[in-house]
Nucleic acid binder design. Structure first.
Lengths: 223, 223, 223, 223
DNA sequence: CATGAATGAGATTTCATTCAT
DNA sequence: GATGAATGAAATCTCATTCAT
């Protein structure tokens, strides 16, 4: 128990330091989301290894005690963060599913021009850490498998429509595209200069060419 | 190549160094290599975020003092480690350059069946950290560019020989293949179960198919 | 790793704050003993629950870092403390073994007039904590069993000499005497007022009477 | 005692407290008792040093706020707990007073076969902490003295009936028996293996023998 | 040369207590 | 009356780095 006699001095005197305490009818989920955003911001900026609960708390404008009030420990925070990132990714894919424009999907997947610019920086940090945090690796495994399934389904649709080469099974193609995305995700934050807007377009074109049916083959499938 | 010899103050002035004739830096280099190996081992096992100089010292069987004696600080250790990893990678590629068997190269690159099994686990850890350690990012940028050049040259040779599709410039193709490799490197330590030997073969076949000339096109280039 | 750039300002200027650092040819065992003494002192004064490594360090005049340098963690510190206490107790008993004056032994055992006045206060604190620190409970079990053996041997000698009642086996008697000692050890620090010197004498006399042969029985054994 | 009635907010409609006539403190007392039981459970299981208000609250199925609402602070909780334990002990002794079967009393006292199995584990934890919590030590002193008085009275009765040796004053004997009980109470949770049912019987027999009149002496008192 | 004792900061986590609601 | 969000201190432990020897 270790005697914790705080017995703090009441510094209510003056207008300064109005410590907000007690029960502000907090929306637990909202506060958690707020903390997750702060955590993402810190990780994106400083990297996973340099991220501490203290920094997250500072970024969120509260004390470390508040952070551990909402997340039992660092692992839980990080796991929740991963889940939330995948959620937003899933949401993005869901909107696409109806109209499988392969190029648009790849563009979003690979370079995520839209939405959260911190997405890949955070994701890559989390991914490499996954290996050494079992509870976290489980999340990755589960959600990544789902992503690949969605991608495979999209590619299969493309194959049926003749916009995607069909000499490679859709699931294998999904794996390749997934790896491609992971690779770019990894290098993008490290070498931002390499990935200018125009270079990204060219890379995308090349990737599309890779998975498109060869000119001759398309005709064949059409005959 | 990653020779950082005599970073420290060279006190050759006294009578001390007189006794040492042969390679006085030999011991030093050997000890550094030993420490680098220990560092790689710890990083591969515990991840960058959980690696401390103390653990490296323990793994190498010496004290923390020794580590900081041979490396001015942690950053220098990590940078030297990255250099040495690239050295070994370069060596691997150099042997291949004479006989550009694309499949063999990809196999080594992507799955590195031969040699150090810690290679990718360590590399991925270092890569994601690069962003937040400027001196280290510089190393990555420089060496990675060289790797892509080598790969592009290999692919260009393949294009000339008709074994690689030529509807995409070699340098763009090298970028794609590089990203593919990075992606697999990233996921391999996280989801080892996904990468069984047979799955790796299938993935490799698919990758080869992706960069191979389309059946019709090859004939065209041959005419 | 979490970037720990101390890079402290060298405050060598002036005579103040001469921080002793580096390698003072420390005698590891001596330093550990010193820290154990400090720990005993804190525990005796503040109780186990209120003892922190910080307080131990302050008492020993060093930083908490120094404490954890010599003891991997709190459990190790506490276990080592228990061992050292038992060592000193064993030493006390060893000197007695040659001349088994039951009264003197009991006096020392039960009230430990000689030697470390912190002995029982510390011991009782450690004992109650043993249950919840497995590694520690093991020490207690092992050493306590030995103590009881020694005591049983002493009592057996007394029985052979006719100074101790022999209608109860020596080992059972040792258990009783041990429990008596534990009980007093427990209450002594709590109710110091109850245990005046004269009261202790009376209690001792009563205890001696309890384990002495009854007047009639002694004659019987003497015949 | 573990009455969980009206745990939640009392929604008695708009009339609120008007409905409550009888003992408005009845609920309060019940809730306090419930919390005390939870506290005892936690202390028995985890030890005093590892007990926190939070754990107590969890065990009781409420929030920390509830605990500090019913008990001004931790000290008050612990003191109330001690009082309640002594109450139950007193109750046990009271039933025995009419029929002073020394063996039965000792059995209950020393090994407390009947009733709450957490009794001694909790009591020993509280006792060693008493020294460092003055308000708490006062409780111990007062109640323990009363216990010894009761025990002394019982022993005096035994002496009058010839079932207890009378060569030692009853109050001294009570002190010895009390210490014996404390000693066993202390070791019992630590070395449960030592205290098998049969061993307990043997120890009890020995203790009875210790305080029984010697064979010769009994005859003397009978003459 | 090389060691390892020691530092001081910081990380994670726990905790008793407070107080707006 | 009762809750539970939040605090701020402290506890344990880890770490990169320094420096006397």
């Amino acid at each position: 128990m270790s005697e914790n006699s705080t017995r703090r001095v009441r510094r209510d005197g003056g207008t300064a330091a109005v410590v907000r305490r007690g029960r502000p009818t907090g929306d637990r989920a909202a506060k958690r989301a707020e903390l997750l955003a702060a955590a993402a911001s810190v990780i994106a900026q400083e990297g996973y290894a340099n991220t501490s609960l203290r920094k997250v708390a500072q970024r969120a404008g509260c004390t470390t005690g508040a952070v551990t009030y909402y997340f039992a420990n660092k692992e839980e925070l990080v796991t929740a963060l991963a889940e939330s990132r995948f959620d937003s990714f899933d949401a993005m894919l869901a909107t696409e599913r109806s109209q499988p424009d392969i190029r648009a999907i790849l563009e979003r997947w690979l370079f995520r021009n839209t939405g959260d610019p911190e997405f890949w920086p955070v994701m890559s940090q989390l991914l490499v850490h996954a290996r050494h945090e079992p509870a976290f690796a489980a999340v990755i495994e589960r959600r990544y498998a789902r992503l690949r399934d969605v991608l495979a389904a999209l590619l299969a649709t493309g194959q049926a429509q003749g916009t995607v080469r069909d000499d490679i099974p859709a699931d294998l193609l999904a794996d390749q595209v997934g790896a491609l995305g992971d690779g770019w995700m990894l290098m993008l934050p490290i070498e931002p200069k390499r990935f200018t807007a125009s270079r990204v377009q060219v890379l995308l074109d090349a990737a599309i060419t890779l998975i498109s049916p060869p000119p001759g083959a398309r005709r064949t499938s059409g005959s």
